[in-house]
């Protein structure tokens, strides 16, 4: 089972992607809910808010403890910041992957953008990338591989146990990164093959997890 850290941010978007891969996604709010997960996703949101909530809830220690027991971690956007060993100008939170990140590195919301790129290790087809007030990975340390570099910054990287992207794979129809993470966790998915685009995904798909009327 893969958990999604449910403190703030794009939680349901990840649950939706996991469901499309036939994986059971679990919302994780408290330390008691984290045991026996193959992996956990730390979603996008505001990293300062998540940092604070991780600290006061005891989730920070719980994640580190489970990580040491073999749980894999996937951080998107704010999640990547929280996992980084070095955050420029700020103290790190979980420090579980040797990368240096700069927060909010592109500017304001008007600098948010969408593009596509080939990430050969993850998919044989171009993957859609959504950058929202994104950070940049500036440097990587030993034991960390670059998955995608664009210009002078790194957009996706991994160590044997941690996957990070500065963009939001959960905000587009491709399931490639989530499948890649599932494999990293040793899990099989129901969707395999060359194209990981799910034609039934659309920008409103998240709402099925947040209905007010049924």
């Amino acid at each position: 089972m893969i958990g999604v850290l449910d403190l703030q941010g794009g939680v349901v978007e990840h649950l939706d992607h996991l469901k499309r891969l036939g994986l059971a996604g679990l919302r994780v709010k408290k330390p008691s809910e984290i045991s026996n997960l193959a992996g956990i996703i730390i979603p996008g949101g505001e990293s300062t808010c998540l940092f604070r909530l991780l600290t006061i809830s005891g989730m920070k220690e719980a994640i580190v403890r489970e990580f040491q027991q073999g749980m894999k971690i996937f951080g998107t956007c704010a999640g990547a910041i929280l996992l980084a060993k070095t955050v420029i100008g700020e103290s790190p939170c979980l420090a579980l992957i040797d990368i240096e990140v700069e927060r909010n590195s592109f500017g304001s919301q008007m600098d948010s953008f969408f593009c596509e790129a080939l990430v050969p290790r993850v998919s044989s087809m171009p993957v859609p990338l959504t950058f929202i007030r994104a950070p940049k990975i500036k440097k990587i340390g030993p034991g960390v591989d670059i998955l995608l570099k664009i210009g002078n910054y790194i957009a996706a990287a991994e160590s044997p146990d941690v996957l990070v992207t500065i963009f939001h794979p959960e905000l587009a129809g491709s399931l490639a990164f989530h499948r890649y993470f599932a494999h990293k966790c040793g899990l099989k998915t129901i969707k395999e093959g060359r194209s990981m685009d799910d034609p039934t995904w659309n920008a409103k798909s998240w709402t099925q997890f947040a209905r007010v009327a049924d």
Binding site: G9, E13, G44, G45, E46, A78, T130, I132, H168
Partner: peptide
């Protein structure tokens, strides 16, 4: 989508 990232906040 930016607003989506603010959810729960």
């Amino acid at each position: 989508q930016l607003a989506q990232m603010l959810k729960g906040g």
